[in-house]
């Protein structure tokens, strides 16, 4: 059984949250992912991921001040929890371990 459940997209979202640190709210996360990874992010998909992550306890949220540009709606800021951090680390370690396990005989393995 897997210790930490974390999908690929979920991982990206979590990483972005960590990058943005105090400024991680919906639109900012979306923009960050879009600019860094050059991929289109659907609001709905991202939101679903956020909801799941929050359910799993990897991130937590708090409401910010309502702003003009959002027509009075408050921003919801996300933060990675300690559990979330461990999940990210676990995911990274498993990958590293896997990377490390690739034998040197095939140095030209292509990853695309």
């Amino acid at each position: 059984m897997k210790k930490y459940q974390l999908g690929e997209f979920e991982e990206i979202v979590m990483l972005t949250i960590a990058i943005l640190y105090k400024e991680a709210y919906g639109v900012a996360i979306k923009n960050e992912i879009e600019s860094r990874l050059k991929r289109n992010v659907s609001m709905g998909a991202m939101h679903t991921a956020l909801v799941r992550l929050e359910d799993k306890g990897y991130i937590r949220s708090h409401d910010g001040e309502p702003t003009e540009e959002r027509m009075g709606r408050p921003k919801k800021y996300f933060q990675v929890t300690a559990l979330g951090k461990r999940a990210m680390e676990y995911s990274r370690e498993t990958r590293n371990a896997l990377w490390g396990a690739i034998p040197d005989v095939s140095p030209n393995v292509k990853f695309s």
Binding site: G26, V27, H47, D63, E69, R70, R73, P74, K76
Partner: peptide
């Protein structure tokens, strides 16, 4: 609130 805010901002 959040969803509406995000969508509006975008």
């Amino acid at each position: 609130d959040e969803i509406e805010g995000d969508l509006t901002e975008v």
